[in-house]
Design a protein around this nucleic acid. Structure first.
Length: 151
DNA sequence: TAGGCCATCTGGTCCT
DNA sequence: AGGACCAGATGGCCTA
């Protein structure tokens, strides 16, 4: 005699009790099983959707803290990760430099010199003669418009 | 219209 | 057992 005590697809203690015997059991069990499977699939889909939405929220937050250098188009996920990597490496480099220089004053004057020049060009809307990109931008290794996947 | 990016669905695997 | 995570498939939207 067939019972509904069944596969891993079945969650049902309940269905086992109902269907242990009797006419129409097979049909009822299989339709119940399919119904349960469909319900679980829908629930899994919803969870997956929520999970991906959470992931996308995290990407949006990352985009906000990562420099975009005036890109009007939002960075793709891949570009965001690359930019974040480059950003972190640049900051790490700056910190390492700070440690290398003996006096804090020396380090500050080194960097402020660059940043003052940047602000000057920014406010006067002039292009620097030699280096066309701002200092802070130049120290980054990742530029989306130039980036190509190296295989 | 082709290519890039994305959201969603789905089945498999791992973890608790 | 159920949830989290992952990767492949698919279809929609947008842009050059």
């Amino acid at each position: 005699m067939k019972t509904c005590n069944s596969s891993h697809l079945e969650s049902g203690v309940e269905s086992e009790l109902q269907c242990r015997s009797g006419a129409g059991c097979v049909a009822k069990c299989s339709s119940e099983r399919m119904e349960n499977a469909a319900k679980r699939r829908l629930a899994a889909n919803a969870r997956e959707r929520r999970r991906m939405q959470g992931l996308n929220t995290a990407f949006d937050r990352l985009r906000k803290v990562v420099p975009q250098w005036g890109q009007d188009k939002k960075l793709s996920k891949y570009e965001t990760l690359q930019m974040a990597l480059s950003y972190i490496m640049a900051l790490t480099r700056i910190l390492a430099e700070a440690e290398r220089y003996s006096s804090e004053r020396e380090w500050i004057s080194l960097h402020c010199e660059h940043f003052h020049a940047d602000s000057y060009h920014h406010y006067t809307a002039q292009k620097p003669a030699a280096d066309s990109e701002p200092y802070a931008q130049r120290i980054f290794t990742y530029h989306p418009e130039h980036f190509q996947i190296a295989n």
